[in-house]
Every structure is written in C-alpha cells, then in structure tokens.
Amino acid sequence: MSADGPGAVRRALDRASASLRSGRRALARFAPRPSAFSAAPDAEAAAVRSVRNLRTFRAHYAVIQWALLLASLAPRHRASMLFLMAASKGLLLYGALLRAFPASALLRRLLDRRLVAAVFVALVLADLAAAGALPNLLFALAAGAPVVLLHAAFRVRDDLEPGAAASADNGAGGEEEEATGVVVEKKEDGDMETGPTRRSATAAAKS
C-alpha cells in the first residue's frame, strides 16, 4: 500500500499536468496573439472566414457558452448547475471512450454521436425548464453570441496549420516529378521496344 500511494499521486499529477498542457494549447490556438486577428477585406471574405472558424473552433465556442450558462445558474439554481456539471462529465467520458476505442461498434452504432448529443441537449432543456431557468439559457446565449461572432469574423486561420501549404507544394512537386519520371521511363521503354523493330525492318528491306 505504501508503494502504491506515491505511484497513484504521481499518476494523478501527470494527468493534471497533461490536462493543463492541453488546456494551454487549446487557449493558445483560440487566441494566440493580437496579430492573429484582422478584419476581412470584404463581406464575402468575412462570411467565408466565419463559417470556417465556426467549424474549427466549435468546441471552444461550446465551452464559452457552457461556462456562461453555469455562471448564470450559480446564484439561484445551484442544483441545476450541479446536475449540468455531472451531465457534462458524462459527455466528456463518452468522448474519452471514443478516443480510447475508435473501432468500437457499440460506441459508433448504438451510441451514435448525434444520439448522445440529442439526449444531452434534451436533458439540459428539461432540467432548465423544471427549474425555471430558461431565461438563464437565453442570457448565456445573448452574452456569448457576440463573443463567438466577433472571434469567428476576425480570427485569421493562416497560422492554424503552419507548413501545410509548403507540404502541399512539396507533395505536388513530388507528384509532378514522379509523373515526369514515369513519362520518361515510358518513352525510354518505347524507344527500346521500337528500336529493334525499325532495325529489323531495315535489314529485311535490304535483304
């Protein structure tokens, strides 16, 4: 037992440090520096950027809305806040199981993501309606929507995947070189094949 105690504490500290590092990486990706935000040149570019950012940062935006909802429930609806926190832990457990068992037929077919999300939303709405806290949900949405929209419209996505364009260019160049090599090889093979045929035809004509 004495040997297991320090090991359990060490594992808990490792998990805590890993979650802290992942949280820092997520925060740095969400808002890395002031230069990562700029206005779009026109309305069409702003709309395209907003749609892309909404897809890329949907987890961050969901966390913002969820934190605002829990904060609004804290003063008068603590029981609902605790229930929603427990429900969110169950959702996180489901996500961890999906990562741990990506090929599980039970998780992919029976417990589909859409089904789990629908059940989660239904539980949240039912609890808020029973507690009379639907105005808190509307307040959280009204407070978080401007933040989400501003971030989605001004966050530049060029630095989200550094080196992706270079790797794509290198891959395209490699494919072109490979295709050129194949064409050259085919031409050489054709010359080798047609060469003797021409020589044999010439020799037959002379004979």
Rank of each mutant, 00 (worst) to 15 (best):
M1G: 15
A3C: 03
G5M: 01
A12M: 12
L13I: 10
L13M: 13
D14I: 08
L20F: 11
R24K: 13
R29G: 05
F30Q: 01
P34Q: 08
F37T: 03
A40R: 04
P41E: 08
A43K: 05
V48Q: 07
R52Y: 02
R52I: 00
L54Y: 03
L54H: 01
A59W: 09
H60C: 14
V63W: 03
V63L: 13
I64V: 15
W66V: 12
A67W: 00
A67V: 14
L70Y: 02
S80L: 01
M81C: 15
M81D: 02
F83R: 04
L84K: 01
L84C: 10
A86R: 06
G90R: 08
G90F: 06
L91K: 09
L91Q: 10
L93E: 15
Y94W: 11
G95H: 13
L98R: 15
R99P: 00
A100E: 13
P102H: 11
S104V: 07
R108D: 12
R109E: 14
L110C: 00
D112I: 00
D112L: 00
R113M: 06
R113G: 14
L115P: 01
F120T: 09
A122Y: 07
V124P: 01
D127G: 01
G132T: 02
P135N: 09
P135K: 08
N136T: 04
F139A: 13
F139P: 02
L141P: 00
L141M: 10
A142C: 11
A142Y: 05
G144D: 01
G144W: 04
A145V: 05
A145C: 07
L149F: 06
L149T: 02
A152L: 03
A152S: 04
R155Q: 05
R157W: 04
D159A: 13
L160K: 00
G163F: 09
A165T: 08
N170G: 09
N170M: 12
N170I: 04
N170V: 10
N170H: 12
G171R: 11
G173L: 12
G174I: 02
E178Q: 09
V183Q: 04
E193H: 09
P196M: 06
S200M: 13
A205G: 01
